[in-house]
Design a protein around this nucleic acid. Structure first.
Lengths: 215, 215
DNA sequence: TAAGATTCGTGATACCTTCTAACTGAATCT
DNA sequence: AGATTCAGTTAGAAGGTATCACGAATCTTA
């Protein structure tokens, strides 16, 4: 396919610098949050002066978009490799939780408060549908004996988002519940909303997951 | 109690300007998000020049904190008056959803991505416990026939956050599930994560609520 | 190998932002 | 009436994004 030798040394240098920029960006985001990300600060940390960074990323937005893309990619890969290793829905849930706790701001970059005007490029939407596919597969593999709800009927007519996945409405419903419920616990935990209360969020997560699997 | 005459005309003017500043702030937040809130822009919109605003709010953080406080207050009032009007858990859920859809950024200001360093003042924490109390009351009023889970046992020993509320562990558990599940659907909807998929989020919300009430 | 083209990094600059400081003028208090 | 308080102004520091023009290093090509 492509030339094996990672192309010219200049491009190698270029991609390496881009990677280094992203590493500093992640470090900064982890401590200050994405909204306070400063290209200037990154440049100084790397020993070069301000505008030099714009040779590698056209704008702050472009860098953040790339970070979002990488975050999605990382989550999709985590789930995919878990699924390949034979993970069931429960294992998938714990994989997501582990991934989120590894770097809370990375999770929140994807699923947290969005900037009103921002629209993710199509390739990112594609990755998110990859994730949904893994989820749907895992839900399909689960026995489903719950009665059809009104929402199930609605989903029978609104299943474009599942692409060509042959899952029945009940499975689509389960996938959505899985997503929203675990996100509910996880996002509140990561946002620190459970801070004062001293119960263990992991147990709430487990309880929600159990309820999801047995009902 | 206090002097009825809303105090001196100067203080009246002061509080009126503070209110006007907050109104402009909310308008700005609704369109640009809280992270892009600009004191300068607000000042210009009000026909006064930049630094004048610092007579009313010592810093950008102080203004945002006040907005957060007002948001919490508004949500607490909404829930409280609904409860007083005899709302059950389902009605409470719809009250929350209505309140959130009224101004998505206001909801996300409370429950969205937090700034890592930020710590809300105590009086805000107090309002949030007010909300929790209304929720616990509504959960108590509901029949509860589910078997005790391991998480229930854990909650029996970690119930400080419920204050002096006499709710049994199963009710505490239900309140937490109520909170996290509805937040799960709501936050993903408000964040636009359901954008591509064309199902109706209201029906997913209703389905989650129904599941919460019947199981 | 030498010339030409490309690309990297720099400093200068424009225009934002938050926020402090010094000053003016008007309203309020004594 | 005189003193004080307080709103609002301009100026400016410090820091941010982003563009531009220029020197310097490197790659390509003849």
């Amino acid at each position: 396919m492509a030339k094996m030798d990672t192309k010219t040394p200049r491009e190698r240098y270029r991609t390496q610098v881009r990677a280094e920029i992203k590493e500093h960006a992640w470090a900064q985001i982890a401590t200050t949050g994405a909204s306070a990300l400063s290209l200037n600060a990154i440049a100084k940390q790397m020993g070069m002066s301000g505008p030099a960074l714009y040779r590698y990323y056209a704008s702050r937005d472009e860098l953040i978009t790339e970070l979002i893309r990488d975050a999605y990619r990382s989550l999709a890969d985590t789930l995919h490799s878990a699924a390949v290793a034979g993970a069931d829905l429960a294992a998938l849930a714990h994989a997501v939780r582990g991934w989120a706790l590894e770097d809370p701001q990375r999770y929140l970059l994807i699923y947290g408060t969005p900037v009103p005007g921002y629209h993710a490029p199509d390739d990112i939407t594609l990755i998110s549908s990859e994730i949904m596919t893994v989820l749907l597969d895992a839900c399909t593999a689960l026995p489903s004996d719950s009665p059809a709800t009104p929402f199930d009927a609605h989903l029978a007519d609104h299943r474009d988002w599942a692409g060509s996945h042959p899952a029945p409405p009940a499975v689509l419903h389960r996938a959505l519940s899985f997503w929203t419920r675990l996100h509910g616990v996880l996002s509140l935990e990561l946002a620190g909303q459970f801070a004062g209360m001293d119960f263990d969020p992991a147990l709430l997560f487990a309880a929600e997951l159990d309820d999801l699997l047995t009902h």
